[in-house]
Amino acid sequence: MNQPQDDPTPPSAESSAQADPNAASDAPARALRITVARSGGVAGIAPTWSITATEEPDVDSWLSLVESCPWDAPEGGAAGDPGDAGSIAGGGTGVADGGAGGGGAGQPDRFVYTIRVVLAEPSTPDPDDERDARVPERALGPWRTLVDRVKDASTSP
């Protein structure tokens, strides 16, 4: 896999525009969609940013970013199946409660981020591998690169 964390240029969000016909003919197409939704804040306005990657190099780049996040950490992580933690194929859904309850009570009007990753493989009947995490603003640290890159690459609100 590529290591986009070390590359200042974010992976392309519009890979279909750069499709290489030779590469596209082989590998089974995978589509990765990452959505970042922000709620809270004094304004109470909830924007959403998302990217979709379909070319293998881009999917791999984004996946390595996804897998660098602490999905299984107590704060800011998803509570999926422990055996599959760390792999997008494992799926899982969790709420990072470090800020939603105790932390949120201490700091009203802070943001809460909901991060959702869906990897679809159209060739399988039940294609969706997915995971979600709810991350309070104060725990954003290890998620920040992913969140910022999705925001920067997002083409729609």
């Binding site: 109470g44 306005i45 909830a46 809460v112």
Partner: peptide, 25 residues
């Protein structure tokens, strides 16, 4: 871009959501 102000004005339109600490705003 922002859409319409989503605040309800009465209990008839109370918003059930997990976001925003249960829709506090």
């Amino acid at each position: 871009v922002l859409g319409k102000d989503p605040q309800p004005a009465s209990m008839d339109h109370y918003v059930d959501t997990a976001d925003d600490n249960g829709g506090v705003h």
